[in-house]
């Protein structure tokens, strides 16, 4: 019996040795590729945070940049236009999913108070921007955020082509809010025109 156990143990040790040698060989030859592939897979793995801490956003007095930014898809403000009884949530991002729920904020533009171009967009449905045709130069648009309330005065309205990105310039010399929607407002089907309302910051009160 002792000999059987001894022989069995020695056979198992040989098997373990072969196994360890294989693992070592795999990591030596393919270790980097394996790590790279795992980090690629990590990039497409989404884990929801269990307890989302509410971010406190403040404006940096020197740079005027925000201390932190909302996550993509997160609601961070409300858009109010009293002239047309509009009061809608503003979300960071502009996917179709976001636009179903409210106003989208183009991720390539600045935020209220940062002193640059802000681009909002939304559908021209009756409960959203359908009444943009009633807006006039001088009307006030209000954006309320957790870090302040900002008022913009309309100075221009234009009809542009959907590909005409030059009409929505991103700059940081002056705080301009540009809101656009599909045009004509009562169009049927797919339209390639956009109606843009341009407004400048006239007052801002930080929270």
């Amino acid at each position: 019996m002792k000999k059987v156990i001894k022989a069995t143990v020695s056979n198992i040790i040989v098997a373990l040795f072969i196994f360890i040698f294989t693992i070592g060989g795999i990591f030596l030859c393919l270790g980097r590729d394996i790590k790279n592939n795992i980090s690629l897979i990590d990039k497409i793995t989404v884990v929801e945070a269990e307890n989302k801490e509410e971010k406190v956003i403040e404006v940096d007095k020197i740079t005027n940049y925000l201390s932190s930014y909302p996550s993509y898809g997160e609601k961070y403000a409300t858009l109010e236009i009293d002239k047309i009884d509009l009061n809608k949530d503003v979300y960071f991002g502009d996917t179709y999913e976001i636009l179903k729920n409210g106003v989208g904020h183009n991720a390539g533009s600045y935020f209220p108070s940062e002193g640059g171009s802000i681009v909002y967009l939304g559908h021209n449905t009756p409960d959203m921007f359908r009444r943009f045709s009633e807006l006039e130069i001088g009307d006030i648009i209000t954006v309320k955020t957790s870090y302040g309330t900002f008022n913009y005065k309309i100075y221009d309205m234009q009809v542009i082509d959907e590909t005409d990105k030059d009409k929505l310039p991103i700059q940081r010399e002056e705080e301009i809010l540009m809101i656009y929607t599909c045009y004509p407002f009562n169009a049927l089907g797919h339209t390639t025109n956009r109606y843009v309302v341009y407004s400048k910051l006239v007052s801002g009160e930080e929270a």
Binding site: Y96, E97, L99, K100, H123, N124, T125, T181, C182, N186, A187, L188, G189, H190, T191
Partner: peptide, 12 residues
């Protein structure tokens, strides 16, 4: 859901 994304702005 994807079809719905286009209906809102279509006026249909």
């Amino acid at each position: 859901n994807n079809f719905e994304n286009y209906i809102y702005q279509s006026g249909l």
